[in-house]
Amino acid sequence: MVMRVEHEVHQRRKGRNFGILGVLLAFILIVFGVTVAKIQTGGFSEGFDHVARPGMLPVEEESQ
C-alpha cells in the first residue's frame, strides 16, 4: 500500500472549508434562535399581510 502525503495546498483548503462550515453553522443557529425566540414571545402575529382582519379591530360597545 502506497502512503501519499497530502499537499500543502490541500491542507490549507481543508482549513478554509472548515472555517466556512463554522460560519455557515453559526448563521443557521442565529436564524434558528431568532425564529424560536419570536415564536415563544408571540412576535409572529396577524397583520403582516396588510389585510384588515376582524380579530384586529377594536371592540365597539353596543349602544341601545
Results as ranks from 00 to 15, higher is better:
Val2Arg: 08
Lys38Met: 11
Val36Met: 12
Leu21Lys: 10
Val31Gly: 01
Pro58Asn: 01
Gly43Asp: 05
Lys38Pro: 03
Ile28Pro: 01
Gln11Leu: 12
Glu6His: 03
Asn17Thr: 01
Val51Lys: 14
Val51Ile: 03
Gly19Asp: 01
His7Lys: 15
Ile39Gln: 08
Phe32Asn: 01
Gly43Phe: 04
Ser45Trp: 03
Ala37Lys: 05
Glu60Met: 14
Glu61Met: 14
Ser63Ala: 07
Phe18Arg: 11
Leu21Gln: 08
Glu8Cys: 12
Leu25Trp: 01
Ala37Met: 11
Ile20Phe: 04
Glu8His: 03
Gln11Met: 14
Thr41Ser: 09
Phe44Gln: 01
Arg4Leu: 13
Asp49Tyr: 03
Ile39Arg: 13
Asp49Gly: 07
Val51Met: 05
Pro54Met: 00
Gln64Trp: 12
Ser45Asn: 04
Lys14Thr: 02
Arg12Met: 06
Thr41Glu: 04
Gly42Arg: 05
Gly33Glu: 09
Glu62Tyr: 10
Gly19Ala: 03
Glu62Leu: 15
Phe48Arg: 04
Ile28Gly: 00
Gly47Glu: 11
Gln64Ala: 08
Thr35Val: 05
Val59Pro: 02
Phe18Leu: 12
Glu62Phe: 13
Gly33Met: 15
Ala52Met: 09
Val31Gln: 11
Leu57Glu: 09
Gly22Asp: 06
Gly33Asn: 14
Phe32Ala: 10
Ile28Cys: 02
